[in-house]
Nucleic acid binder design. Sequence first.
DNA 1: GGCGTGCTTGACGTTGACGTAAGCGGAATG
DNA 2: CATTCCGCTTACGTCAACGTCAAGCACGCC
Lengths: 144, 144
Amino acid sequence: MQRTFTIRQLTKEFDVTARTLRFYEDEGLIAPERRGQTRIYSGRDRARITLILRGRRVGFSLAEIREILDLYDVHHDGGVMQTLHARKKFEEQLHKLERQKIDIEDSVTELRRAIAIVDDAIAKGELPPPAAMQPATLHRVAAE
Amino acid sequence: MQRTFTIRQLTKEFDVTARTLRFYEDEGLIAPERRGQTRIYSGRDRARITLILRGRRVGFSLAEIREILDLYDVHHDGGVMQTLHARKKFEEQLHKLERQKIDIEDSVTELRRAIAIVDDAIAKGELPPPAAMQPATLHRVAAE
DNA sequence: GGCGTGCTTGACGTTGACGTAAGCGGAATG
DNA sequence: CATTCCGCTTACGTCAACGTCAAGCACGCC
């Protein structure tokens, strides 16, 4: 099992450009070692990249992602207050995510409905009835 | 029950600025009527705004949102080919959302774990043990 | 008629998240 | 030894999604 990674390996694994990884470093999100000039990424760096990219996919800004990463870095110098503050921040992120989950589930059911309507129309009469689906779906949303 | 809305009503309801709604109009995402100069938003416009904002919250770009809205607008002039194409697009969006849902669920369980660790540390010995949580969580991710 | 208030249309500014181009430093390969 | 790959840095460019003025009309009201 490999303990360190080159920048190329990571760009291929995560499908991002080297520019992106260097940018994240400039922003202080990761801090790979150097052998001379060359960056050497550790497993920890790799783990952080995983978090960053997943955060990105679910719509977090880099600033928010930085906050989360910082929370994981609360170490020895942190008193109880610090720890409690971290806990609060974690919960905030949690709530945001759960809200997003609901949004996604709503969107999913809506898309399933739309697909079902399309399938129905195709199955029945080749061409779908003119205004069958667009008012139906949109006004259901409007009703809420 | 009211059938039309002013721009102010909608900005308050959705907590966005008027600039944002006008911007969406410039981008062709909504098309309110006019009484003279003034915009009059219909229930359909309102429904589309709901979709736009929900899309935004789950991380879609306006371009992607536009695509989805366009799909709902496939009407009378659409043949079977058009309809099938729409169906395909719907399914693409569906897959993207389901992928995001997994990302979110992963993040949620991770956050819950982190919170549990914090709580544990607080409950046991006031100050959390120095390097208890940060390597634990980050290396679990790295292990995958 | 003057005043404020709300809505309008430009046009330019801003922020985040990178892309792109130019040029240099090693190292490996023919 | 010259070339060809990476990789590095510095600096400017870009695109999306609005924000922020500036300036103007239409109105209701005192």
